[in-house]
Design a protein around this nucleic acid. Structure first.
Lengths: 408, 408
DNA sequence: ATATCTTTTTAATTTTTTAACAAAAGTGTT
DNA sequence: AACACTTTTGTTAAAAAATTAAAAAGATAT
């Protein structure tokens, strides 16, 4: 049990110096996790300490089995520096992604390498708190299979849709019960559990590993069944008072619009989300407005999902393309709001729909030009995410790491 | 010239210890400026140093003439602590507020006390760069009158409306010239000049001296001729990539709406700002829809301004009250957008129109209930600013102080 | 092979903290 | 009201820690 998270956790009976040392060690481990092997000098730039001090910390960490020397780096004409990196088995993090219709689990080692294959459990989130036990069982099996010592697991990061307050561990939308869902998981797993909203974990993944890496003010829009907004301001993930910031999909966009699942009418989500596309596609199919899309789903409207529409569009289906263009226009108008409010460096578009970026980006750009002040709208960079479907799970794992390691 | 800003400025030929010392001294001065007299222990909590070290820094600052002992504070049963505070004449900051129709100047001492009366110069900002010389002259006269040594002036903070980039010192909307307007002022004054957008300086004033003091996520809405939004996230003022964040007044709210001065149509500002109120009031006056408002302006529509309308409303004028209610509804819808995006702790309403808060707050609340997710909208606190008209000038002065003192 | 450039190591110096003690002021008991 | 007790602050000296500076070691270029 005398493992880093415990050992380096802030204890009140520590003196100032010990606290500082441990905080610096945690910083080093975090840095090596996120950015890989580094030299003493690189780390010095980051933790602002003199060479002798860093070397002494690195030696302590080496003796504790946390890090190892990894040969020598390059020099531009001088002695070659030693490289230090986390030891693969120094610790592990478990990432769990609960989506509407399935749950994925992955385990990462101390080098931020995913050491598991694809583990997917089909489960419907609307079934509520009853899906907790299967998820725990599924995860425990993977941990056992990989023969990872429990005390080497830093904790479990869990991303899910809905109004998630990571401080209290409550999800107000899904998996609602009389106790905070994070606590339910914590009890069952017997270890640290962090829950976070999926749009935010993906934004965090972009910030640490993706297109937002060197930027300070970036928005990420995740398009799947709903519309998720991730906000990065001043180089940090923004969550708001309760963690509910980013309810972009429920901005009222249309007067007397369609009823949204949130109870209001005319939300952006009713006209520019995966749900909206499927609704429009079903209507179109009934009216026989597309033969290609119909074929893809065997003429069964219930089989329509975002991927079918994206595929049909990519195959040249006019009806699907026009639906995507329509979604793009509305989304672009919404983005114009965001750009004027945030003046971000870029907006990163993610989710299944982004595979149709050729159809959706032009109308977005057009709407931005129409609705945005040119000083703000002309310079904005709209990109498609390069992180794959694992972004969320990677993000929530990193988020957990930072939460554990940033304590105090 | 060996005055604090110079003396404590980060010089590359300083060693680490000296740099750290100076940075800590700057922190102390900043803290004493913002929060007044403090004890050694209070400061220790803030700069995280041991008592002997802080005492030694305080003694150095005392010898340098920056701070002084101010007798003793209270104790809950023990030796009474020494109080330390900035010396009034340690340094001065000049604050200038350029509004649409007038410019105000004030000087603050090192205790953040305003040492000048009300100095107001009627000047129209749309006259462009030609107003710079009169402003400089006006300010220099006040400095001379107060007999303040130039080298004791930390710098000049300048707030103004428009798209202001405080990094480059450029205002894209007003006072446009071939050189950054901040540089023009800097040259003429021969000292540090910071320019910032007025909505942001007011938000900063709320953060440091007003209702946002102990909060982390707050929005401020300033209502005068336009609508200004100030954004405080994670306890910091947010500015966006170019400093243009917060263009709330130009969100497109109405399809086929009135032409806005920004070139687009249907902006929030066309229906919910001082400009909009005056336009509506003029139309109403022509149609003889209000006798009270007419009397207040001697039946001359050109004399209508926000204050007249607010006064008429407070005197019971139905027409003025209904205009304010209308503005409140639109503003409330706009705020619903902001609340869903930011999930803030509170929204602080400022500007002349807030004197009519009894007429404008209820429709705002109503609109929030209609357009906002109840989880976000029900708990939001909408307050009227308690800082007076000097908030902006105080804010920009504090902003300049922090910019100078936070360097490195 | 020599000069140059970098990183690492070592030792000396400086800085900061810890901890013990002294001083000052309030609290409570007799 | 005098006295001891407690609490908090301030001072000092010893101990610990971190930095600086100098030297050594390792690598590259001329």
């Amino acid at each position: 049990m005398n493992f880093p998270p415990e050992k380096y956790s802030s204890e009140s009976d520590m003196n100032l110096v010990e606290q500082k040392n441990n905080s610096q060690k945690r910083k080093i481990i975090k840095h090596l996790f996120l950015y890989g092997a580094m030299t003493n000098t690189d780390l010095g730039r980051y933790v602002k300490l003199s060479t002798p001090k860093i070397i002494s910390l690195l030696n302590e960490l080496k003796n504790e089995g946390m890090i190892e020397e990894l040969g020598q780096g390059n020099s531009s004409g001088g002695r070659r520096p030693n490289l230090y990196g986390n030891k693969e088995d120094a610790f592990y993090i478990v990432g769990i992604s609960i989506n509407i219709y399935q749950t994925s689990v992955a385990i990462f080692n101390a080098k931020n390498q995913k050491i598991t294959g694809d583990h997917i459990l089909p489960l419907t989130i609307t079934h509520g708190i009853s899906i907790v036990d299967p998820i725990v069982q599924f995860t425990e099996n993977i941990i056992q299979e990989k023969q990872i010592a429990r005390e080497k697991i830093l904790g479990i990061g869990l991303e899910m849709p809905g109004l998630v307050d990571s401080e209290t561990g409550i999800n107000k939308t899904y998996l609602v019960s009389n106790r905070p869902v994070a606590e339910v998981f914590r009890k069952k797993f017997g270890m640290e559990v962090l829950i976070e909203n999926d749009a935010k974990t993906r934004a965090f993944a972009e910030l640490r590993f993706g297109a937002a890496q060197l930027k300070r003010n970036v928005l990420t829009v995740h398009l799947d069944w709903g519309i998720g907004l991730g906000i990065i301001v001043n180089g940090k993930l923004y969550k708001g008072r309760d963690g509910f910031a980013g309810e972009f999909g429920h901005l009222p966009m249309v007067d007397n619009g369609i009823l949204c699942k949130c109870g209001k009418t005319g939300c952006l989500e009713t006209i520019a989300s995966g749900t909206a596309i499927v609704r429009m596609a079903k209507e179109g199919l009934k009216e026989k407005r597309s033969s290609l899309l119909g074929k893809l789903v065997d003429e069964n409207p219930e089989k329509i999902d975002i991927i079918n529409v994206v595929r049909a569009a990519n195959m040249g289906d006019q009806f699907s393309i026009s639906m995507l263009a329509n979604v793009g226009q509305w989304l672009g108008k919404g983005m114009a709001y965001l750009i004027q409010i945030f003046n971000p460096e870029s907006i990163i578009l993610g989710g299944q729909i982004s595979e149709a970026s050729q159809f959706i980006l032009p109308p977005i750009q057009q709407a931005i030009h129409i609705f945005c002040n040119p000083e703000l709208g002309n310079e904005i960079e709209i990109k498609v995410s390069e992180l794959g479907s694992q972004a969320g799970i990677q993000g929530v794992a990193a988020l957990l790491l930072e939460r554990v390691l940033d304590k105090k």
